[in-house]
Structures are given as C-alpha cells and as structure tokens.
Design a protein around this nucleic acid. Structure first.
Length: 493
RNA sequence: GGCCCUGUCGUCUAGCCAGGCCUAGGACACAAGGUUUUCAACCUUGCAACACGAGUUCAAAUCUCGUCAGGGUCACCA
C-alpha cells in the first residue's frame, strides 16, 4: 500500500462531537498501521453555521483525547490550505471546469421556487427532487443571465439512466441507479462549494488514499464517485464505519446523549478511557483485549474486523473503563496531578471563592456549597424545579427553550448566559426569579448555590446542557413532536 | 414512502469470508456468594443471544433465497 493518507473533515458548526473522535480514531490508527499520514481538514463551507470558536473547539477536543494530526490548518503541510473557506477559488475553478465539460450546469432557480416545487412534489406523494428546469438552458441565455448578475448555483448533471457501482471495503459492492440521484448543488450562490464538491476536490488534491467516514455518507457516495469520474480522477477506497447509536437505536444525538467531547472532559472521564471506549465501538482486537491505547490498537489493527451493526454508546461501560484506568494506571501522585489539570486547582478556586464567600459562615461551608461544580452529575428533586405559580409543563418548555437559546451562540460566559436566560424569560413573560429557580436546581441539585450565571459558566456549556437535559428528563421528558413545537414557537418569537 | 445499509445475550462483541472443534466464548450491567471496620474495588458463581421461514448439505450462527425488523438518506447542512 503506497502512501496511505487519510483525513477527518469536521465542520465547525457546534460542539465537538464524539462521533468525530470516533471516526478520527479509526483514521488515525489506520494511518499509524500503514505508516501513513493523518490529516485534519476543516469543512467550513457553510458560512451561516461555521464559527472560528467552534474550530478552536475541534482542535482542543481532539488534542484532549490524544488524536494528533500530521497536517492541518494549525500545523500546516504540503497540501494546504486545510481550511475550506480558504480554498473557494479552487472549488470555483473546478466547478467551472465541470460546467465546460458538460458534467454540471448553472441553475438560476430561486430558493423560493425550489421550496414550492418540493412542497408540490411532496403533496403528490413524490420524493422531492430537482426537476431539471435549468439543465438545458442555452449557452447564450446562461451568459446573459450571468451578465445581468442573476445569482446562480452550479448543479451536478447526473445521468438520467444507468447505474453507479462502487466498492465499500467492508460492505462489498453497492449499486445505485442514477435516476434515483438528484442533481446536487455543487456550488452555492454565495460562491461557496457544498460538501460534495469540496470533499471530492480536496480529497483528490490532498492525495487522500482512503476515505474512512460514517455510514450516513453511503447514500451520497454515488455523487462523489460520479465527480471523480467526470474529473477523470482515481477514486480513493471507501470505508464506511458503523454509526454510534442512542439507546433507542437511532443515530447518536445530543438530545438523548451527551455528544460533546468536552462533556466527557468536564465530567471527569479520563481521555484515554474515552478513546479506548471508542475503539471498542464496532471493533475488537484479535487478542480480545478490551483495554488498550492507540499504539496497541495499531499493532494488530485490521480494518476488516470492523463489525457493521451500529453500536449503542453506553455511558455505563465507559464509566467502568474510566475507573479501570484510574485504578490500574495512575499512581496517587499522578492522579492528584490529573485532578489538578482537570479543574481541581487554585485557578478555578479563585473564580469561585468570591462567589461563595457571602454564603459562608465557616470555612467548612465552602465545599458543601459548591461541590456540584466538580461533580459528574447531581441528584435533584423534580418538584424543586418548578417555580411558584408555574407547572411542570411550563417548566419543561422553559428549560427546553433555554437549550435552544444557548445553542445560538458559540460563546459561553456569565454575560452570555445571563443574556440568554433573560431572553427566554422575557419570551415566556417570566420574572427572572422564576426563570432562575429551575436552573439553580438543574445545575446544582440544590436551592441554595453560588450565583447561577457564574456557576454555569464555570461548569461549562456541555455539562450545563446535560444537567438541563437531565432536569427535563426528571420532569417527564419531551416527545419529538413537542420538541418541534417548542422549537417553532421559539423560532417565531 | 423510494433507495441504500444492517440484524449473535439488555449493552459492546468473538465466532461467519475458508460449514463440523459452538450443548455459541469474553466484557459491561444485573443477581448471589467470598474478602473487607463501611462502601467501592477485587475474586467466584449465576442469568442471558444466533430476528423469522425456506433451501443447499451427512452437518448451518456460518452458504443461498425470501420475510420481518431496525437504521441511514432523500437541502444553496455537513
């Protein structure tokens, strides 16, 4: 195998996901085993959702679990830039090339028309698909429209018949009929590429040899294969990993599970145990060992041993593994050091002490007052969550809406938290006091605690989110239908 | 709904490709016992699965087909 080059390509649009670390791990181990290179590429082509803060989070999260990359936006490499927003010209040139070759075409349809078309198709029981209106516009008209400054997208011209066949290393031959595949937008009207174009162009330019990614990409692989063909490029080997699942069997989601890597860091799981656990998902070492690090995994790694059913992400087993590492691998002085590095240090105490001081009578009050800040989880009494003159249903919606609100910003500090809570309180026409009560209890498990905003800031966004989710569960949880209803209400504020 | 992927204990998995060694092995969880000043840890034991139905074969968890079930995906998101 010559020059194995693999990559992970996360998009900086939210909290760094454990699924990213999972896929990164298998890529990394595959590279290690083949003395190849492991590349980090930032897919920030969605200008509305991407944020530099989230990019930094990806770096920090991957470093924390110990997944280091050979090439990337921060460390450089021979195939940069590694940030897609810095490569727009490349994509535009390639899109143009494709148009000239007849493999793609400019589309002038407005989002409005597309939405109507889709709604119409749905109403008639058809699956939504671009109708090909702009597929055959004459060159003159296209030139005219472009000259007039009409916004356009570039769409992939998918053959109307024939089959697309590709090999997946783990699943064998997969076949799709071209007629089932939509004329995907490759270049958006803002000039940025969609995933499909950017991904194929970059993988080729960066000489990626193996595409190891999640199973959810299988259905868009035909589009990628078509692109390789149209460009006349050799395609990489495709390896689709099984998905990480919620307990109900659906794709791992933050509504049902803590999915942010930072949650695991802040809740005090050992990074080596998280990485090890991820290695257990869909994989087993030939010797059956369950406790191993990346180097050991790479020693006898065999991609063919990956099992194909999705794996339920089981916090209970992860907790056991973390405990195993703490007990077996850390001498007490090292453990003390690890606790220090975590959040049991004077820097953090300094932040907190001023907040707690007013509530202390004796020094012995300090730890009991703020122990929740160093706890993986807190116990709470569901009744304490409900403010006076409100009921459980209102509280439920309030907490859920707050969850939506905090997702709207990539930042997390006392000011932002206060702002968001006030925003939601106003929306519900609740007094601030009523709004903070359920949060106090959700966050601390108690009615008496240091100031809420600082506490939440200190806890971190991910731990705070999970505690609010737990509080919602304690109140009976929210159905998918209700969730959508709540989201809609909030969005229309 | 169309298309695609998948289907071994509650959960993660071994075994499947090269059918017999499988009255299906390990781990988590759970239960019982042991050890221990308590708890945890640790040790021992137990509980528990080849989705279903046909076919091929002397023999099928393993090969073939069908059924069912679950998931993924159908955006100017990745």
């Amino acid at each position: 195998m010559s020059h194995v080059r693999v990559r992970i390509a996360p998009s900086p649009t939210g909290a760094p996901h454990v699924g990213t670390a999972y896929i990164a791990l298998f890529n990394k181990v595959f590279a290690m085993q083949n003395s190849g290179k492991f590349i980090l590429r930032i897919e920030d082509t969605d200008q509305t959702r991407s944020h530099p803060e989230y990019e930094k989070n990806i770096f920090d999260a991957l470093k924390w679990v110990g997944l280091l990359w050979d090439e990337g936006p921060d460390v450089g490499g021979d195939y940069g830039p590694y940030r897609q927003s810095e490569r727009t010209e490349t994509y535009q040139q390639h899109a143009e090339k494709l148009v000239q070759k007849g493999g793609a075409y400019r589309c002038f349809c407005t989002p409005d028309r597309l939405a109507k078309m889709r709604a119409d198709q749905m109403a008639r029981g058809l699956s939504p698909k671009y109708d090909g209106k702009c597929r055959h516009i004459s060159e003159n008209i296209v030139a005219q429209k472009v000259n007039n400054g009409e916004p356009f997208t570039v769409r992939l011209k998918v053959p109307r018949s024939g089959k697309c066949v590709f090999e997946d290393r783990l699943r064998g031959r997969i076949t799709y009929n071209y007629k089932e595949i939509d004329d995907q937008v490759l270049l958006k009207s803002d000039g940025f590429p969609t995933y499909h174009l950017a991904n194929v162009v970059d993988d080729h330019l960066m000489k990626i040899s193996h595409v190891i990614r999640g199973e959810e990409w299988i259905s868009s692989t035909p589009k990628h294969v078509l692109l390789y063909k149209l460009f006349g490029w050799e395609q990489p080997e495709f390896i689709h990993m099984p998905l990480l699942l919620n307990a109900d069997g659906s794709k791992l989601s933050k509504r049902r599970n803590p999915t942010s890597i930072f949650y695991y860091r802040d809740a005090g799981y050992l990074p080596e145990s998280l990485l090890n656990y991820l290695g257990l998902m869909g994989y087993s070492r030939p010797n059956g060992e369950e406790k191993f690090n990346m180097e050991q995994m790479a020693e006898d790694f065999d991609i063919e041993r990956v099992s194909l059913g999705g794996s339920t992400f089981d916090l209970v087993k992860l907790k056991w593994l973390s405990g195993k590492y703490i007990r077996e691998d850390l001498k007490s002085d090292v453990l003390q050091q690890r606790l220090n590095e975590w959040r049991l240090n004077s820097e953090f105490f300094t932040e907190i002490i001023a907040c707690v001081q007013e509530r202390m009578d004796t020094l012995g009050d300090f730890i009991p007052l703020c122990s929740f800040l160093w706890a993986r989880e807190v116990e709470l009494n569901p009744e304490d969550l409900i403010p006076k003159k409100k009921d459980d249903k209102e509280t439920l919606q309030f907490l859920q809406t707050l969850l939506f609100a905090i997702e709207e910003t990539p930042f997390w500090n006392a000011e932002v938290i206060e702002e968001k809570i006030k925003e939601v309180a106003e929306f519900f026409e609740w007094k601030l006091r009523q709004a903070t009560q359920p949060l106090f209890v959700a966050i601390s498990g108690k009615k008496v605690a240091p100031p809420l905003f600082s506490s939440m800031a200190f806890l971190g966004k991910d731990l705070s989110r999970v505690r609010i989710v737990s509080a919602i569960e304690a109140l009976g949880g929210v159905s998918k239908k209700k969730l959508q209803k709540f989201q809609k209400a909030w969005d229309q504020r």
